[in-house]
Design a binder for these strands. Structure first.
Length: 421
RNA sequence: GGAGAGGUGGCAGAGUGGUCGAAUGCGCCGGACUCGAAAUCCGGUAUGGCGGUUUCCGUCAUCGUGGGUUCAAAUCCCACCCUCUCCGCCA
């Protein structure tokens, strides 16, 4: 959510910056709603003040045993007038709020211009894609040949876009998550957190999934709970409605969770394999920092995700997303894209973003600084990494001519010494 | 799932219709005393919105959440949520 003051004071400037990410702000509608709101709110509050004063008088008069019928008569009509003013204000505030909640974040000045992923800018590159002297298989063929990956059974048990892993592959999947968690907690200073996988609507609103992306979420209607699409939701909402002490900052949390997404609107995309699933595991990094620190934190956090790819020896590139390709809540995003030989291309494996105060304003997540007044925190997060896609990358990049897959050395301790599948 | 108790400021805790955004204590901030500190004393100390003559003033809202009754609700009524205790069940 943007600062409504900013919209009031510099509407055209905001509209211009939003245009950079391909969003057209209806300034006329906003101004109309705002003008009406101001008029209605002033009117309502005047009536409330009048009522409060009269009620107070009645109270004082009664205490002294005086006759109150004169004042009572005076306030008699106030009630209906006030009620209609209040309901009119409420009726107006709903669309204004919805509008406000559905306006995306302003892109940072360093964000490249552009409309789609083809306009993203490569920032850096690590590793060299391996040259194969045999025909590479994709991860589905690698895994199914080894009899360790079974989509047919997953579909029977559940439905499409679910997967089932067995034996060494299931263990490798677990090993990857363990390795990531250990690295972030021991090397990068994150606190490991175990979180609920079902969260309430307030939490979904806090991080920006609601109201705009409600149809992308799995929900349990009768309980009003929703499956998390990422651990970002529970981790960031830890500070919702909190005022944290400045000396506790920065807060750095890491969690390994399953993530659930409907993938609405992605019909036909990545239907084969584990790339796009309704359920996948992810290790998520979240930082809550002072505003001046958030861009440094974004750089650091992206580096923490890169460290995993480097340790696993997976070639990747770091992309600065252009305005048109960024997510709704982000002010700036780096995507890390891992090399997938079977697709002969780089695919997203981590997305690291600075949200500035966009999420924390919705959540009222603040800290008390030198000014004495509570100030909004900035939130930064990123995948460190998507476990399923990391597994895909290992199966494809480390496949051998005989159909086996060698395992990167850093994972051996987590594999009980097993060095190949 | 059954029975009971309860949700009030940073924390503890009073308040059962009227100058109550809310006593008191703790904590925190400032000051006095002191060579300094402790103790003591004095003062201050919620958040959000709106308006303005914008280091301040005015006003509105907020006592778990949402409705209702009333001129007036922390207080009364209804629904829901949550916490605690006991019983049952359970990984």
């Amino acid at each position: 959510m943007l600062d409504i003051q900013l919209l009031r004071n510099d509407l055209d400037g905001v509209a211009q910056r939003l245009a950079a990410r391909g969003y057209t702000l209806d300034t006329t509608e906003f101004q109309r709603l705002e003008a009406e709101r101001k008029q209605l709110q002033t009117r309502t509050q005047e009536l409330q003040a009048k009522r409060n004063a009269s009620s107070k008088q009645i109270g004082m008069a009664k205490a002294k045993g005086e006759d109150v019928s004169a004042i009572m008569a005076e306030v008699a009509n106030l009630g209906t007038e006030l009620k209609s003013a209040e309901s009119a204000l409420e009726a107006l505030q709903a669309p204004l709020n919805t509008l406000l909640m559905t306006i995306p974040n302003l892109p940072h000045e360093s964000v490249p211009a552009g409309k789609s992923d083809t306009d993203n800018v490569e920032v850096s590159r690590f590793g060299t894609p391996r040259v194969f002297d045999f025909e590479v298989k994709d991860h589905v063929d690698v895994g199914e040949t080894l009899k360790l990956l079974d989509f047919a059974t997953a579909t029977k048990i559940s439905s499409a876009r679910f997967s089932l892993m067995k034996g060494g592959l299931a263990r490798l999947h677990r090993a990857l998550a363990q390795f990531m968690l250990d690295t972030h907690t021991t090397q990068h200073g994150y606190t490991e957190v175990y979180v609920p996988y079902l969260v309430n609507a307030d939490s979904m609103r806090g991080t920006g999934q609601f109201p705009k992306f409600a149809e992308d979420q799995f929900g349990i209607e009768r309980d009003g709970l929703y499956l998390i699409p990422t651990a970002e939701v529970p981790l960031t909402n830890m500070v919702r409605d909190e005022i944290v002490a400045q000396d506790s900052l920065p807060l750095k949390f890491v969690a390994h969770t399953p993530c659930f997404r409907r993938e609405a609107g992605s019909y036909g995309r990545d239907t084969r394999g584990m790339i796009r699933q309704h359920q996948f595991d992810k290790v998520e990094l979240v930082q809550l920092v002072e505003p001046e620190q958030s861009y440094a934190a974004l750089e650091a956090l992206t580096g923490h995700a890169e460290a995993i790819l480097q340790a696993l020896g997976l070639p990747y590139r770091k992309m600065a997303l252009c305005g048109g390709d960024m997510g709704f809540s982000a002010a700036k995003t780096y995507d890390l894209e891992v090399w997938l030989p079977a697709q002969n291309t780089y695919r997203e494996i981590s997305s690291c973003s600075n949200f500035e105060a966009f999420q924390t304003r919705r959540m009222q997540a603040r800290f008390r600084g030198e000014k004495g007044k509570p100030e909004l925190l900035h939130s930064v997060n990123g995948s460190g990494l998507a476990v399923g896609r990391t597994l895909v990358a290992i199966l494809e990049n480390y496949q051998q001519a005989d159909g086996s897959v060698t395992i990167p050395a850093v994972l051996w301790p987590y594999m009980g010494g097993v060095q190949a599948l």
